Structure formats: structure tokens, C-alpha cells
Amino acid sequence: MDTTLAGESGQLTFRDAVDADVPVLVRLIESAYRGDSSRAGWTTEADILEGQRTDPEGVRQIVEAPGSRLLVVEHGGELVACCQLEHRGDAAYFGMFAVRPALQGAGLGKVVIAEAERVVRESWGVTEMHMTVISLREELIAWYERRGYRRTGEFSPFPYGDERFGVPQRDDLAFELLIKDLVRPER
């Protein structure tokens, strides 16, 4: 897929992650959400969560799980984005979405989510994409709404006490389910 990225013309390559990608994926995901490096982009969770976002074991489980894919995006041979896709009956789950902070706001996220939707529609024949987002992340939820996702008002609790998902800095965190209908293209 051809696209312009950060002012340079180049080729984006999409592929499934392999075990050798795990260390680089962990660094990418952490850089997009946690710590000072995440503040270079707009998806940071650094003000509401400290600690880790993921770890090698968690990423490896997604890479190896049946019915799950970790889609890797490369530009110029460098890993620049990723997302988790999981087959759940008539729906797919979209998660672990990360774009290198310095590239956020350049349109790469739109390209990645569109490709993820195409992949799950064509590979699994699903009719919906589901995701969960921390309900306080209004700017991020608005970005997904502009891509066709809708808020459901269905919430699930944040896993307080499980530091594999971070150390909350607030006591009011919850996940909201967002859903997008995936219309199958006419053939």
C-alpha cells in the first residue's frame, strides 16, 4: 500500500507479527502510551496510568493465540505501528493499537485502522469491529467516532490491582465498548 508518511513518500508494509518482533512491539506500545516519550504523540495515557502498558509475555500471547493476529506496520523497514485483531464470532476485536508518537497526527492511524477493518472483513467475514477505550479518553473516543465507531454505553471495570495493565492514577477508570458496523463491499 502506497502512502505519504511524515512528509516522505514511501511504502507501508502490513504483515502478521512473529515472535522475533515482540521486543520491538513492546517498545512501540510503551512509547505510544506510557512515560515521557508518549507525550510526543496525542495518545498518551501518562497522566492517568503509570507503569507498563504491556510486556513481552502479553504481546507473545497475542502473536501465538489461535484466532488472533497482531498486525505490524512497517515503513522503510522500520516498525511504525501495530494493532491486535481477534476473531470473536460475528465480530472482531481491535486492540493494542499503537503508532510511533512522532508519527501521530500524520494520517497513519487512519490508514492502519482502515486496513485492519478490511483484513477482518475479508479474513473472517465479520460484520462488526469491537474495541474498548478508557472512558475518560474523550479525544481518543472522538477520533474513533470520526472513523464510524459508536459509543455503546456498555462499560467494563479497569483491572485495578493488576499492574500488568499499569498503575492507575485515578479511581474512576473504566472501559467503554465502541462498535463499528463493517459493511461488506459489493462484489
Rank of each mutant, 00 (worst) to 15 (best):
S135W: 12
F14H: 11
I134D: 08
V59C: 11
G41K: 03
D36F: 08
G95I: 07
E50N: 06
P101Y: 11
E117Q: 14
A98N: 10
P56T: 05
V22C: 08
E45K: 05
A40Y: 02
V26G: 06
A20V: 09
R15W: 04
E64R: 15
L5D: 05
A116M: 10
A40V: 12
L136N: 09
A92Y: 09
R27N: 07
E78C: 01
Q104P: 09
V26L: 04
V22D: 02
L12T: 12
L25T: 04
E30V: 02
Q11L: 14
G41C: 00
L49D: 02
L49N: 04
L71G: 01
A20T: 12
I134L: 15
D2Q: 14
E30G: 05
Q104V: 09
S68R: 09
T4A: 11
E145N: 10
A20L: 05
A46Q: 10
L103A: 07
S68D: 09
D55W: 06
G67T: 00
E122A: 13
M96T: 12
V63Q: 08
A116C: 12
V24F: 05
L70M: 11
L70C: 05
T4Y: 07
T127K: 11
R88V: 13
A6R: 12
V133H: 10
E122T: 13
A98M: 11
K110H: 12
R27E: 15
Y93L: 13
V72H: 05
E8Y: 07
A92S: 14
L5M: 08
L12E: 12
